[in-house]
Computed example of a mutant assay.
Amino acid sequence: MNELIQIGPISPLRQRLIDDMTMRRFSKETQRNYLRDVGRFATWLGRSPHTASAEDVRQFQIEQQQAGVPAPTMNSIVGALRFFFTHTLDRPDLARKLVRTRQVRKIPVVLTMAEVKRLLDATRSLKHQAALSVAYGAGLRVAEVSALKVSDVDSKRMLLRIERGKGGRYRNAMLPEGLLLLLRDWWRAGRQQGILVPDGWLFPGQSAAAPISTRQLYRVVVEAAEAADIDKRVGPHTLRHSFATHLLEDGVDIRVIQALLGHAKLNTTAFYTQVATKTVRSVVSPLDRLALASPSEEAPDG
């Protein structure tokens, strides 16, 4: 019997996994993804995953690869199973049998500043414009935008408090003056509509009791891009990519950008150097310097 598939009461094993994630302050989205991915393994296994063997783990990975499961999906499953085997089952021996799939990282799509403005202007409501402006103006992940509360806006220090970013990490994000003014406009409008309260969500969903979903924010971005005649493949993360790239092109130190994005590793942030075309264009090639050199100049030895 698959104890990770919720049918009726929550099984003890599923509850233990939930407790382990909650104790480590995993976000609701991360918990949902881990439950889904561990459940996928349990369904394949056909019995409780606490009975899994090293050979079961090996065969599961082989069959998933043969089935054409994309590398990002497989790595997500590996991360969930590693946590499950290590912390919930106390079976680190099984966790060591899991192999991450090598993944070629694609160069992200980045909008020009003019395209970002067109996209924001093309939104259908003040709430949507404010939410997308937060994604771009502060460089937040879509889940971080969704999870913002009114109390996370610190206008005195001009910061946005991100209570649970990726991996459960806390950080402060920047709050530009223009974004603060827009959020104040949204606050007044939301109060008049009766959907914004001091301790509530900054961007409520269909009801004030729940935040706007990441799926809804994705639809908002896609619809705004279409309305703005932007033919690039655009999603909420495109605004975060654009934020980082535009800062890099403006000469902001890459370690500052790393802190603003909440990246654990600098090489993750450094990837944006590949798309910072303005930075590349500003570099003078040695070939061009040859044309400027005096004919009498000689190149130094070595």
Score class of each variant (00 low, 15 high):
M1H: 06
M1A: 15
M1L: 03
I7W: 10
I7T: 07
I10D: 10
L13M: 09
L13H: 04
L13T: 07
Q15K: 04
L17G: 10
D19C: 05
T22F: 01
F26R: 13
S27K: 00
K28S: 15
K28V: 13
K28I: 12
T30E: 13
Q31G: 15
R32F: 08
R32I: 10
Y34C: 03
L35G: 01
L35F: 04
V38P: 05
T43C: 04
T43K: 09
W44F: 03
L45W: 00
G46I: 09
S48L: 07
A52T: 09
S53N: 06
E55G: 02
D56K: 10
F60T: 00
F60L: 05
I62F: 15
V69A: 11
P70E: 15
N75H: 02
G79P: 06
L81R: 01
R82F: 12
F83I: 02
F84C: 07
F84G: 07
H87K: 07
D90K: 14
K97T: 13
V99F: 04
R102M: 11
R102I: 12
Q103K: 15
P108A: 09
T112K: 06
A114V: 06
E115I: 09
V116A: 00
V116W: 05
K117S: 04
L120N: 00
Q129W: 05
L132M: 13
L132A: 12
L132T: 03
A135N: 09
A135R: 04
G137I: 02
G139W: 00
G139R: 02
V142P: 01
V145T: 07
V145D: 08
A147V: 09
K149F: 11
K149V: 04
V150E: 10
V153N: 03
K156I: 15
K156C: 13
L159S: 01
R161E: 11
R164L: 10
G165K: 02
K166Q: 06
G168A: 09
N172E: 13
L175M: 11
G178L: 12
L179Q: 00
L179H: 07
L179G: 08
L180N: 06
L182P: 03
L182C: 08
D185I: 10
R191T: 14
R191S: 11
Q193D: 15
Q193N: 09
G194K: 04
G194S: 06
L196D: 02
V197I: 15
P198Q: 14
G200V: 01
W201D: 07
F203E: 06
P204G: 08
G205I: 08
S207I: 09
A209G: 10
P211A: 00
R215W: 13
Q216H: 11
Q216Y: 12
Y218T: 14
Y218A: 13
V221F: 03
V222S: 02
A224T: 07
A224Y: 00
A225S: 03
A225K: 01
I230C: 13
K232L: 04
P236D: 01
A244H: 04
L248P: 03
L248C: 05
D250N: 12
G251K: 01
V252N: 07
D253A: 05
R255L: 03
V256E: 10
I257H: 00
G262D: 01
H263N: 11
N267H: 14
N267P: 00
T269P: 04
Y272E: 05
Y272D: 08
Y272R: 00
Q274W: 02
A276C: 12
K278Q: 12
T279R: 05
T279A: 14
R281H: 12
V283W: 11
D288Q: 15
A293T: 08
E298F: 06
A299D: 11
G302S: 15
